[in-house]
Design a protein around this nucleic acid. Structure first.
Lengths: 183, 183
DNA sequence: TTTATTAGGTTTTAAGTTGCAACTAAAAAC
DNA sequence: GTTTTTAGTTGCAACTTAAAACCTAATAAA
């Protein structure tokens, strides 16, 4: 294992991605969430909207409720019915769903999905999700790098202009990631 | 099936989410992509970084290549090795991964993930992903609604100030989706 | 008020997927 | 030319999924 590979292995620790995926990475989960965002609230509603099997739906709803992403409560006016809703934690997944959807529009379907998520105020579709710097500048792949927590503590401010790679420090520019144009 | 439910069922058609999930919704897929973003390029690299089984990894890499998300090519200098890289299509999934990661930081781990994705220019961490209006205003759940493609064509411009629900039009405010504060 | 229907599950069973360990084949190193 | 490395494949047991039938409580219809 060379130095770089050793650094790269480190990159895995302390990332919230695997933990998040344990809950939301399961099959059907995003489809259930989408239906929820669309206003579906009842078992049979999810069933007919999504095309999932009954037992799997029951299982997934239970898991989403356990994870605190959805809430479950029997209806007052009709006690057969149960109301499933997004909690704040679940509602906060909207940006993830929108990001996936926008990616799909661009690379899979080629056309905007319907219905469109829009600004309620002026009824214009929302813009594309972008990565931004702390001062709101839009950042592309070439403008990004991974930096280690430690550097943030040590060099927190001070040498903010550097574009130089320093020795064994875990700093990698994301522009190196794509396919090589000339190699 | 009442009018609302009928409308809601319509909401499923023409959405790119299910199509996208067919490719990127599979187990391990995001972990492979994350490793890729971290600079991992070879079979054994993914294997040791992710903790996935050999056969599953082989299967997933094949599928990602088929989907145009990763590229595969044998190395020139060592023909045993194969180089897997993100294509532009794959690299464009960064915002999805960042969105999931930020959600996990907020709701699961409670602490920022390491390493941090930062602006290469000033080395400051990127800001939280937000949904924005066409004019760049940050939008919260309460500021959003679903609107039908058709409305965009018909009312495209003209009555841009409305906050009124019109009859059977597919317009739903997202603030209605959360748990009821008083019910 | 019995009877039928609806809502939200559980159970059963077949089919498919995962994960581990052992094996292979080609290229490179010794 | 023997060993090691890299990227796979194969075989098998354990687990997960999906479809269909079944169950129970609550409501609506006769």
């Amino acid at each position: 294992m060379d130095k770089l590979t050793e650094n790269l292995a480190e990159l895995g620790t302390g990332c919230s991605l695997p933990i998040s995926l344990e809950v939301i990475g399961e099959r059907w989960c995003f489809m259930i969430l989408r239906a929820s965002f669309n206003g579906v609230r009842h078992f049979e509603g999810f069933l007919s909207e999504i095309g999932i099997a009954r037992n799997i739906l029951a299982n997934r709803l239970t898991r989403l409720v356990e994870a605190g992403i959805m809430s479950r409560r029997p209806c007052d006016h009709d006690k057969r019915k149960v109301e499933y809703r997004l909690t704040d934690k679940g509602a906060d997944l909207l940006s993830v769903i929108v990001a996936i959807r926008q990616w799909g529009e661009k690379w899979e379907t080629g056309v905007p999905s319907n219905p469109v998520l829009a600004d309620a105020k002026d009824r214009q579709p929302i813009s594309r999700i972008t990565l931004r710097a702390h001062d709101d500048r839009v950042l592309g792949l070439d403008d990004l790098c991974w930096i280690d927590e430690e550097e943030l503590r040590n060099h927190g401010s001070g040498d903010a202009a550097g574009d130089t790679d320093r020795g064994d420090m875990v700093v990698r520019h994301l522009k190196e990631i794509g396919e090589p144009s000339a190699a």
